[in-house]
Structures are given as structure tokens and as C-alpha cells.
Design a protein around this nucleic acid. Structure first.
Length: 581
RNA sequence: GGGCCUGUGAGGUAGCUUGGAUAUCCUAACAGUCUUCGGAACUGAAUACCCGGGUUCGAAUCCCGGCAGGCCCUCCA
């Protein structure tokens, strides 16, 4: 057992023992908190009723009954009805340093659990470049996947490619039918022309023209409907063309993701569930349940009013009147597929999918599945002038954001490090720019709506990605300067307030990962990283490390620990940890 | 009309699941530190829990009712 956990259980056991002698019931609830000026606090208010005593008196009584030091408990005081415990600092620090020396880069990493976790994220329609409004999806999803990997799970990330339906048919029509002149005209009418030579950026103009045209030209509506019909009927030529266009767009999207250090393990195409009959199988299953019904013209639905679905219509339709399947029907087939090869299924979704996701869960339940997919919802990022829209051209593309961030980072580096080669500066600029962008987006709780502002996204100090990278580089620099170090894991040599604060912060890394595993609240990782970086900077300002002396090697070991933890935190965030910057 | 989410100093944000002692952190403004191992730094002071009820010894946190913003209520994807 780790020192911290052991400490907590020792405190709890000691308090329980005293409570028993005071006549408290055995199942009395013991609340534990981490306070400012101690390592563990137990409030005594909860005991008040059972013991018929004032909390302040209880605290004093218990404190007087427990003899310290005892085991890992080195101090105990009663204050305002609280019991404040202090941990054996030397034991805690030694434990941390030993683990770092032993595990090195694997510090914080758990043993394989064998649990197969599927994280589906991004999955944007292949009809245009990724914009900042949707950028939370790959960043949150990728960060979560990286954290779960450190937890020892067998993680697969997956992109569900929507290559079925009106949008993609429209997209393929646009590529085949919109003329270069029309595209040129559209570009000229756009306020800020996008001249990026990248497939998704170029073709999105075709898509925009097509979307405008469909309102102006009545015959086009019918034309699209006809292609859609051929697609659903399995016309190979149509299907191939749609897929070809979707693949091209996906290529562009993947380039953007790769620049952000996001790599998907697997792609699943929606059309496969039509082709292999899985969607039809879902239809058959749902029709055979007692919840199923049909409208007059023949569309099938299940009624979900008993499943906590509210609103004017609780009917969840899963086939059209002509018997063809719908998006959600295919999504059901997809989830059955994911469950067949995973133990945990996680979907990272925009908040607009909440109802759909709930319906999906209910339908899975109706079909007899007991597991549920875990949904992680995020609110949209908007612009100060409103919601982003690819079709309307009110967008900030992720490619532009990353480029701008990299440019700014390069400026900063040129100011500071004229000694580096151009090539090295560029590499660092990329790491810093991407770091700033990813950090800024993952920093905020997913359900909080965000308004995108350039100055926030490009922030390099304070609570930012580059701040963590800077501290990492600083630690690396110190270790370089120190030369050969004989690692010293004697915790009793580190007694300064800031040494202890840093060590205690570092020791929490594994707990942070555990919390994220349980709650999927990935914004805890940047918050933790910032705590580590701040604790290090304080330690750095307060304690001379490289100075010769008795504590030098132990301090350097602490520096190494910081470096390892920060590298892992940055790794979880998908941000590079350069050795210098 | 109904459902879900959000509302915390000047701006942004953590804490809310599981109620506890002085509410976290960043930016900006203010006052400082530094002959130092990388100043993308450190220290200090100031300012906040949307409103109204309720439960409780105790509420930012739980319950009820408002108000404001977002998302959704397609035989769309």
C-alpha cells in the first residue's frame, strides 16, 4: 500500500477506536478532507448527535486520546471541531523518490488491467475542415484516451465516418457538379478568403455553393433525392463516388488532427452497417419488442415514454415509411459492434446529441443489452459574434488556429533563443503552439460553454500549456547541468516547506489519473499539471538545488521526479515536452 | 409548451456527484522580489458564489420557485 493511503487508514482507524470507547455506533460516518495546513482533516460535527456532545469538545477529547507519533501520524491537533493530522513527511517523500528512481518514465503508470476501452471521438461529417467549434471533441477524446492508457487499460480510439445520408450525398454532388467558376465566385464573396491549399479547405467551397443552390434551383432537390435513393438501393457507382469524396475530405481532416497530435486507431464507416445487413437486423429486433409500433404510412418506431424520455413526442423512429434505415438505426448497429469487441464503450459527443444518445441507450436496453455506452458531452465553442457555421462561413478553422499559434510561438522563441538553429526553433514553436491550443481547450470543464477568443487561445503564460513545458525544460536544464547524479531517495533530507509541497503534489499524480478514469473529467489533468508547475517554480525560487551540500542529490532526485511527472502530464494532454525551449 | 446543461471577484475559471474551518487558479490593474541553478518566473494586497424561499448545527454544493444564456424536442445526420 502506498504511504498516503496507509496514513489515511491509520488516521481513520485511530479515530474509530476512540469513538467506540465513547459510545458511538459502529457504522458512524467519517468524513475525510485535505485541508490547507495539515495532511488530513476529520470534522467531528457528524459525531455530535450520536455522542450528545459539542463538536469542539469531541475533537479535543479524541485528540487527547490518540497518542502521537504513531505509525505514519506525526501530529494531531484539534481545531474548531476538526481533527488535523500530519503525516510523516520523510516517509512520504522517500516513498515518492524511490518510486521515481525505480520506475522512471513509467511513474504513475498502472499495470495492465486487460479492460478493453473503446473511445469514439471526433467523428465529424466529412464535409468540411475541422473548425474550432468542434475542436473540443478530438482534444477531449484524445486526452481521455491517453489518460486511460496510463491507467493500464487496453484503449482503442475510433472515428465513426458518416458516409451515408443527405449531407455527404450533397457533398459528392457538389464535387461532381459545382463548376470552378461558381467556386471562384463563392470565394470572392467570402469576407476573408481561405486560400489554404488543402483538400478539405478547397472542397468546402463546393459544398457551400451546393447548399445555396439547393434553395434556388427546385430541380436540384429532386436530383439529390434521386442520388440518395440510388445510394440506399445499393447502386455501387453512387456508393463508390460518395465514399471517394468522403475519403478525400477525411484525408484533410486527418492532417489537421495529426498536427494536433491526435491519431485514431480505427475508422468505422457507417455504410458498412447497411452493406453487412446489421442495420436491418436491428430493425428486425426492435420490431419484435412490445414497445414497437408503426405509423399509418409504415414507418416503424419504439415508444420510449417508459424510459425517461420527455417531450411532445416520445416515439423513436427507426425506419422510414419505405422501410429504409435512419442514422440512429445504423448507430445502434455500430454500438452493438463496438460492444462485441470492448468492455467499455465511451462516446465523446456534442451536447446536441444528448437526446439521441439517451434514445440510443433505451433502444439498446429494449434489445436486451445490459451495458450502456458512457457518453461524454461537451458544449460548443462559439465566436463572440455567435455560433460557428461551415455553411455560412462563420468559422475559425483549427488549421488556422494552429498556424497562428505556431507563428506566435516562433516570435517568442526568436526573442529568447537566438542561439538555436532555425530548424530547432521551428520544432519548438510547433510544440509550444499546439500545446497552447490543446491546453486552452481542455482546461475548461466540458459542459461549460466557451466563447473563442484569440488572446486566450494564444496565451503562453500563467495557466497555459507552455507554462508546463517551460517548467519541464527548466528541470531538464538543471539535470543537464548537474551531470552525473547519484539518486538519493532519503526523504528526511528534504524538509523545506516548498520541497514538501512539491513532493506531496507529485505524489498525487496517480490519484488524478484514477479520478479521470472514474469521472472522465479530463480538465483535472491540466489543473493538476499547473499545480505541479507552480509548486516547482516556488521550490525553484526558494531552494538552491545545484549548490553543493548534504541535500543536493535528494533535491536533484526531486527535480527528476518533477520532470517525469510533467512529461507524463503533458503526454496525457497530447502535448510535447521539449528538453529545451 | 416540454426536457437537459450552464450562471462564482473587472474578464475567465476550479470546487457542486459525496453539504463542513479562511472558496481555487489565470488574465488585467495595484504594490513588491531578483549580483541566483533558464524572468514564459516568484511574493503581497484588493475585489466574487444570479435572485427568492426551504432543509440543516452548518449550503457555492441538496430541495422548491424565479431570472438570464446555450443545446435539444426531424420518417436529418
Amino acid at each position: 500500500m502506498k504511504v498516503q493511503e496507509q496514513f489515511v487508514s491509520e488516521c481513520e482507524a485511530a479515530v474509530k477506536k476512540v469513538l467506540a470507547t465513547m459510545g458511538a455506533p459502529e457504522d458512524v460516518k467519517i468524513v475525510k478532507e485535505i485541508p490547507e495546513n495539515a495532511d488530513l482533516a476529520i470534522p467531528c460535527f457528524t459525531f455530535s448527535k450520536a455522542l450528545k456532545m459539542a463538536p469542539v469538545a469531541i475533537a479535543e477529547k479524541i485528540a487527547s486520546e490518540i497518542k502521537v507519533p504513531c505509525g505514519l501520524i506525526t501530529g494531531l491537533t484539534a481545531l474548531n471541531g476538526y481533527l488535523n493530522f500530519n503525516i510523516d513527511n520523510a516517509a512520504l517523500v522517500s516513498d515518492l523518490l524511490q518510486e521515481v528512481v525505480e520506475k522512471d518514465a513509467d511513474f504513475g503508470k498502472s499495470a495492465p488491467t486487460g479492460i478493453r476501452v473503446n473511445v469514439e471521438h471526433t467523428s465529424t461529417n466529412p464535409t468540411g475542415p475541422v473548425h474550432v467549434g468542434r475542436a473540443r471533441n478530438p482534444i477531449i477524446g484524445d486526452t481521455l484516451a491517453r489518460c486511460l492508457k496510463l491507467r493500464g487499460h487496453d484503449v482503442t480510439t475510433e472515428y465513426y465516418v458518416n458516409d451515408v445520408g443527405k449531407q455527404v450525398v450533397m457533398m459528392s454532388w457538389a464535387v461532381a457538379n459545382v463548376t470552378p467558376e461558381e467556386v471562384q465566385k463563392e470565394i470572392e464573396e467570402t469576407e476573408k478568403a481561405d486560400d489554404r491549399d488543402k483538400v478539405d479547405h478547397r472542397l468546402v467551397y463546393n459544398y457551400r455553393v451546393a447548399n445555396k443552390k439547393v434553395f434556388q434551383v427546385p430541380e436540384m432537390e429532386a436530383e439529390i433525392a434521386e442520388i440518395l435513393r440510388k445510394f440506399e438501393a445499393g447502386d455501387q457507382e453512387t456508393i463508390d463516388h460518395v465514399k471517394k469524396v468522403a475519403e478525400a475530405m477525411l484525408g484533410g481532416i486527418n492532417e489537421t488532427l495529426a498536427a494536433m497530435n491526435v491519431k485514431l486507431d480505427r475508422y468505422t464507416w457507417e455504410s458498412t452497417f447497411i452493406a453487412n445487413g446489421a442495420a436491418k437486423e436491428i430493425v428486425r429486433k426492435l420490431q419484435n419488442t412490445p414497445y414497437s409500433g408503426q405509423t399509418e404510412d409504415g414507418a416503424s418506431f419504439v415508444d420510449l415514454k417508459d424510459f425517461g424520455i420527455h417531450g411532445k413526442n416520445t416515439k423513436f423512429t427507426f425506419t422510414r415509411a419505405d422501410g429504409t434505415t435512419l442514422y440512429t438505426t445504423r448507430d445502434l448497429a455500430y454500438h452493438e459492434d463496438k460492444f462485441s469487441r470492448s468492455d467499455r464503450v465511451i462516446d465523446v459527443l456534442g451536447e446536441d446529441q444528448k437526446l439521441g444518445s439517451q434514445q440510443l441507450c433505451s433502444a439498446l436496453q429494449i434489445m436486451g443489452r445490459t451495458e450502456k455506452p458512457e457518453a461524454l458531452f461537451y458544449a460548443f465553442v462559439s465566436l463572440p459574434e455567435g455560433r460557428m457555421s461551415t455553411r455560412k462561413g462563420v468559422v475559425v478553422y483549427l488549421d488556422d488556429l494552429v498556424e497562428e499559434a505556431t507563428d506566435r510561438a516562433l516570435e517568442e522563441i526568436k526573442k529568447r533563443r537566438s542561439d538555436l538553429s532555425e530548424e530547432k526553433m521551428l520544432a519548438i514553436a510547433k510544440a509550444v503552439g499546439v500545446g497552447a491550443v490543446r491546453y486552452n481547450i481542455v482546461r475548461v470543464g466540458a459542459d461549460k460553454q466557451l466563447v473563442f477568443k484569440w488572446e486566450d487561445a494564444l496565451s503562453f503564460d500563467g495557466n497555459s500549456g507552455p507554462y508546463l513545458q517551460y517548467v519541464h525544460a527548466r528541470a531538464c536544464s538543471m539535470l543537464r547541468k548537474a551531470g552525473d547524479v547519484k539518486w538519493d531517495t532519503d526523504g528526511s533530507k528534504l524538509t523545506d516547506e516548498y520541497e514538501l509541497k512539491l513532493a506531496k503534489t507529485l505524489a498525487r499524480f496517480e490519484n488524478v489519473l484514477k479520478d479521470i478514469d472514474e469521472t472522465k473529467r479530463v480538465h483535472m489533468m491540466p489543473a493538476y499539471g499547473h499545480e505541479v508547475a507552480t509548486a516547482f517554480n516556488q521550490f525553484y525560487a526558494a531552494v538552491p538545488v545545484l549548490q553543493a551540500g548534504d541535500s543536493r542529490d535528494a533535491r536533484l532526485t526531486l527535480v527528476k521526479a518533477t520532470k517525469v511527472v510533467l512529461a507524463n502530464v503533458l503526454g496525457c494532454l497530447g502535448i510535447e515536452a521539449p528538453e529545451e525551449m
